Simulated scan of single mutants.
Amino acid sequence: MSSPKTIRWGILATGGIAITFTKDLLVDPTTRGVKHVKHAVVAAASSSSKARAEQFLKDTGCPTDAKAYGSYEELAKDPNVDIIYIATPHSHHYQNAMLCLEAGKNVLCEKAFTVNAPQLKLLVDKAREKKLFLMEAVWTRYFPLSIYVRELITSGRIGPVARVLADNSVALNPEESFKDGKNRMVNPDLAGGALLDLGIYSLTWVFQTLYLTQPEDARTPPTVLAAMKKYAGTKDADEHATIILTFPRSEELGGVAHAVATTSLRVASAPGGTQDLPTTRIQGPKGEIQVYGPSFRPTSTKLVLGDGTVEEKQWPQPGPGKGSGWYNGFGSGKQPEGEGQGMFWEADEAATAVLEGRKEGKYESLAESIVIMEVMDEVRKQGGLVYPEKIETTKYPTQL
């Protein structure tokens, strides 16, 4: 058997999501059955200082010879970096990703990909011009759980999907949690609000079950009807968004299908942190698939068929295992000892694509990412949500 190939990563930004991703990235891939690729972090950059990048590398357990940079420009120029993971707020994704692509670097960019579809289209054009890999880091799409759900659908066990209900809502009490209005969840200057940060996951479940599972030549973008409530604390950020999507489909494939994707800062998908309510329901004439746990990191599934069949499955994330003394999580949340957050699956896909010479992700094409950004643009249009010009602009470079 051939030895695994090593992909050399650069980490752009050093906040919470970068810490979680990097810790997962450094877990031995064989703990999840991946033997063809290994990951190495060779550099990280903080826009605030080199010292902060040095501390980040130390805190995440990176090799001592990994380089620390005090600017993103230095990271983008590092010849030892194969791919850059972008972990800034989505307000900055367009500028940061364009910097990396212009420098000839492959890119895995956090979600939401950009602030608007015109920005994303220009990134895609640049990646194709430079013959580089570009992928949105929608980690959930690459979970074994998600692959299983899509395989259930394409197997026909519930019949053609007729309706999807997807919710990703978290009761954050924004007035208390984000008093100064500067947090990325509510700050207009950071493209704050429920839609781009949380609603992307609701739309992920809709699209990966109602769009991706159709034959490629049959996929048609949906029409959109949306309602939005602004967050009073900062005015130009959304507190709730609810989207009704109608997917055109031939009669042979089941006819028109509907979806409801909803998200909220104010209320929770499952009050009290319980996991006894499905956050996503995928319904067909023969039954439905229920997905439990947060939409971004679901933990179990239930197949319920009209003939009385019920199949339940638990989906814990792999990792170093119990007794390892290793922990990961995000924010104040921590997973059980030795259990990864699950961000390594998207890293494996990105690394594999780079090795194979592919230029986009296997389970979310760049074309599909654009369609989803266009849906969110339409939701914002109907809700009257416009962000400051400096983060909506397609002008590069723009100082943020």
Rank of each mutant, 00 (worst) to 15 (best):
W9E: 04
G10L: 01
A13H: 05
A18R: 00
V27T: 06
R32S: 06
G33L: 06
V34N: 02
V34I: 11
K35S: 13
V37S: 02
A45P: 01
S47W: 09
E54T: 03
L57K: 04
D59C: 01
T60L: 03
C62K: 00
P63F: 08
G70N: 02
G70R: 02
S71G: 03
A76Q: 01
P79G: 02
P79R: 03
I86D: 09
H90W: 13
H93D: 05
H93Q: 03
Q95L: 11
G104F: 12
N106H: 11
K111S: 07
V115D: 12
V115M: 04
Q119I: 01
Q119A: 05
E129D: 07
K130Q: 14
F133H: 00
F133N: 00
M135V: 02
M135L: 04
E136A: 05
T140F: 09
T140D: 12
Y142Q: 09
P144G: 13
S146R: 08
V149D: 15
T154I: 12
G156P: 02
V161N: 10
L165T: 14
V170C: 14
E176W: 07
E176L: 12
G181F: 08
K182H: 13
K182G: 13
M185V: 08
G192W: 03
G193R: 01
L210F: 06
L210N: 11
Y211G: 08
T213F: 08
P221H: 10
P221L: 10
K229R: 12
K229W: 07
K230A: 15
Y231E: 11
A232Q: 15
K235L: 15
D238L: 05
H240I: 05
A241E: 03
I243N: 00
E251T: 01
E252R: 07
L253E: 14
V256L: 08
S264N: 01
R266E: 13
V267F: 13
A270Y: 15
P271R: 08
G273E: 10
P278T: 14
R281P: 15
I282R: 10
I282A: 13
Q283Y: 11
I289D: 13
I289Q: 07
G293K: 09
P294V: 14
R297M: 15
D307Q: 04
K313N: 09
Q314T: 09
W315M: 06
G325P: 08
W326N: 06
K334T: 15
E337K: 02
G340N: 14
Q341L: 14
W345A: 01
W345L: 01
E346Q: 11
G361F: 11
K362W: 07
Y363I: 02
Y363G: 01
L366V: 03
V371F: 10
E374P: 00
E374F: 00
V375R: 03
R380F: 15
E392I: 06
T393F: 13
T398P: 09
